[in-house]
Design a protein around this nucleic acid. Structure first.
Lengths: 260, 260
DNA sequence: ACATTGTGTTCGCAATGCGAACGAAGTGCA
DNA sequence: TGCACTTCGTTCGCATTGCGAACACAATGT
């Protein structure tokens, strides 16, 4: 059909894709769903939904009262297999905890994958913030400091590819949407070793991030502090937070090098 | 084949089960695996493993360099579709955070499902503890306070069924293995409204738990503090911790009633 | 160089999972 | 209350999908 390149079609298991879709269906604040609701949301036939839901029940990942279905906490095993496969994050949380107790602002670790960053660890402060930003949730990499500092670790070719293919959307008046300007910002962050992103995703968001390295010096994640923009503008605040953040990142880096 | 009861075989999607098995394969500290390793660990044919792994890659849940496969953080979406489906837990963490800053001991929330409890939220202290006990990990309900206090919410029939069918294993010399004694302990905990379990799972574990209720008063989870047994034995310590824990549980209960 | 073991891929076949069609259960209106 | 109408869960024949034995290729040892 196409002459250029390889069109070698890899084997894909359709029902597996659909099954994963069914699990995600329960994501958006919907704890209990009927068979039909699942079918609609996942865009599959009711018959398929039925098979997949019963499979989940059979495996202990879901329960039903005959009418409604809901996930069991056992489903956490799945996402957790990522976290424990790295086994990096469990000990990082204790260091983040300490940091939060010193600076009284929320702290997170996220991993870049493709065009997005994914939160893998969170320590909020008592001031309840965006509860939607839980572990597993993602944000576009180019508008958050956690993303910028990890993009800075890409090679020139990789960054070129990112900038060419990424959907660079505007979220606030502060969002950098010019691709060349974005490249400059990212490279600057890389040179500095930290990233500050001020209200580019949301008017109320101000974040500072530094990278986390493995023993070979490769950037594998980033750690950040978020705070209200007003507070970030206080004199001396940035320097103070940056020093504390760097300190925490170093502790984690060191432990990482020791274990890996 | 069987005359009594219904043997109505529900439709099960085999490839979905196998796919989930493949994901879990990456759990045990194994970040990168070859196709054959996955096949072995998941006890499926290499051909199946290939299909399923390529499906995961196609969907962005895994990556490969042609030789090895690894999960992407995107896989967290799956497990955490449970957490966000309840949306209860995100705000609970801030209250737990506060508690930990006051009492300087680790705090967790877990949900009972079947014979086990599953951690859904954790706030460790800087003294790094059992890092294996992360979100998503499970423990047998009958040997931990988080389990006992949730078992206490079962009806007599349900508790009967639990005690009859559960595998009551001994973990330490302190483990209660006599089923009648266990029933008495659980019912006592229910009457008191809290549970204290001292070294029944591990010699170094001492935990206090209280239930978390929804607006209808139904127990839906439990929150605990864990500490070294030596410290728990200090005079006045139990009363102090219990009061603090109860206070935190009440805050969460109240917020829960407000939102739900 | 030549077994030998281990790994990834192909391909014919049938079991598996598909969805149109069916029946059951609500819902609204007269 | 009865009768259309909608919505939901289930059945079942058929084609597709996913199965694994067999194959090819790579790595390792002797």
């Amino acid at each position: 059909m196409n002459s250029d390149g390889q069109d070698e079609q890899l084997p894909i298991v359709q029902s597996f894709i659909r099954g994963l879709e069914v699990i995600k269906t329960f994501g958006e604040g919907a704890a209990q769903l009927s068979l039909s609701e699942v079918a609609n949301r996942a865009s599959i036939s009711r018959a398929s939904a039925r098979r997949l839901l019963h499979t989940l029940c059979d495996q202990g990942y879901a329960r039903t009262d005959g009418k409604l279905f809901w996930l069991t906490p056992r489903i956490l095993e799945l996402g957790f297999s990522y976290l424990s496969s790295m086994d990096i994050w469990s000990f990082a949380q204790a260091h983040m905890e300490e940091l939060v107790q010193r600076v009284h602002e929320s702290c997170s670790i996220a991993v870049l994958d493709g065009y997005d960053i994914y939160y893998v660890m969170r320590v909020p402060t008592r001031k309840l913030l965006k509860s939607t930003l839980n572990i597993g949730s993602s944000l576009p990499a180019h508008v958050v400091s956690l993303g910028r500092i990890q993009l800075a670790a890409l090679s020139d070719d990789e960054l070129d590819y990112f900038l060419e293919t990424a959907k660079i959307e505007r979220y606030t008046p502060f969002t950098i949407t010019d691709r060349e300007e974005l490249r400059r910002a990212i490279r600057e962050d890389g040179a500095k070793g930290w990233s500050l992103v001020d209200r580019e995703l949301e008017e109320g968001m101000y974040g500072i991030s530094v990278p986390i390295h493995n023993r070979h010096g490769k950037t594998i994640a980033a750690i950040n502090i978020t705070l209200p923009p007003s507070k970030g503008a206080e004199p001396g605040m940035l320097d103070y937070l940056l020093a504390e953040l760097q300190e925490t990142a170093n502790q984690i880096n060191k432990e990482l090098a020791r274990r890996q």
